[in-house]
């Protein structure tokens, strides 16, 4: 009998211990900022929004010349047109997101306490279409990216502040699941997001300068030269990028706007709290 109690106790304990990292969102952000500040004392925190282009003069010059003639202006115009086009049932996007398009981007990602899940901008765009009987956009590129990019452009300069309500254990659990995802090695090549975008950021993998995770989400959707060359245009959402970064370590990628990537975004976007939205932007 004693033995049984002991076993039950041990099981209870091992469940209760939970994640080995009992740090809060605020502590995680502070630690990451301090880590990068120590590595690059000459780079100001606000310059982290420019990713690899703050770290390499060569890359920066190329990037600036691309930005002189942004390749995505026409697609932003399509995004605006989408905002102004009512659904077939007569409703508008405002019925889901409110009237002011400049207030939308920066509300995401957020915790939906009623449905107990993380909501993302693109996830809610699709949800809004379904609720209004519209054919939803494809999840990762095309119109969803144009529309999301235009909404983001309306929010430029606003300070990112992803909120994880500390008094809601489910919200904290979703954030922690995202953090675990970010730091877990995966795939046949056994690499974590953090391996490339924290510990080795600033170094080169082949010709790619690995960008630091702080500042990652400030400029999405991005126009990527590589995506533009692979057929279609260069726009892609954050979850498209997640899929690519999972796949290149030979891990199975997850569904865009599903639970895994939404939780990941919850954590990942938190790591840019305090920086400003600068979207869309060009990336190699």
């Amino acid at each position: 009998m004693k033995k049984v109690i002991l076993i039950v106790l041990a099981a209870g304990l091992s469940l209760g211990v939970g994640p080995a990292f009992a740090t809060t969102q605020a502590e995680d952000i502070a630690a990451l900022k301090a880590y990068f500040a120590e590595r690059w004392p000459n780079i100001k925190d606000e310059d982290m929004v420019n990713g690899a282009y703050s770290l390499s003069e060569d890359k920066r010059i190329n990037w600036e010349s691309m930005r002189d003639f942004p390749p995505y202006e026409d697609h932003l115009a399509i995004g605006e047109e989408i905002w102004n086009t009512p659904f077939k049932n007569g409703n508008t996007w405002a019925s889901c997101f409110g009237d002011d398009p400049s207030t939308i981007r920066n509300r995401f990602p957020h915790w939906n306490a009623r449905d107990k899940k993380v909501e993302t901008l693109e996830g809610n765009i699709i949800q809004c279409q379904k609720a209004n009987g519209e054919e939803p956009f494809k999840a990762k590129k095309g119109k969803i990216a144009y529309f999301s990019a235009w909404l983001a452009s309306q929010a430029n300069g606003q300070t990112i502040n992803v909120v994880v309500p500390q008094d809601d254990p489910d919200a904290v659990a979703a954030y922690e699941a995202g953090r675990q995802f970010f730091y877990a090695k995966r795939g046949q090549l056994n690499l974590s997001c953090a391996d490339c975008h924290v510990y080795q950021s600033g170094l080169y993998a082949r010709g790619n300068l690995l960008s630091p995770a702080r500042g990652h989400t400030t400029h999405f959707p991005v126009w990527r030269g590589k995506w533009a060359r692979s057929g279609g245009d260069g726009f892609g959402t954050l979850h498209r990028r997640y899929g690519g970064c999972n796949s290149q370590v030979r891990a199975k990628s997850f569904k865009a706007h599903g639970e895994e990537y939404s939780n990941l975004e919850y954590f990942h976007a938190s790591m840019s709290n305090g920086l400003t939205i600068e979207a869309p932007d060009y990336r190699e």
Binding site: Q200, L203, Y204, A205, R206, G207, N208
Partner: peptide
């Protein structure tokens, strides 16, 4: 290997 290592004879090498 060139993704991360410099090796004589290689091109476009990383420095991880």
């Amino acid at each position: 290997c060139l993704t991360c290592h410099q090796i004589a004879g290689g091109t476009l090498m990383g420095n991880i």
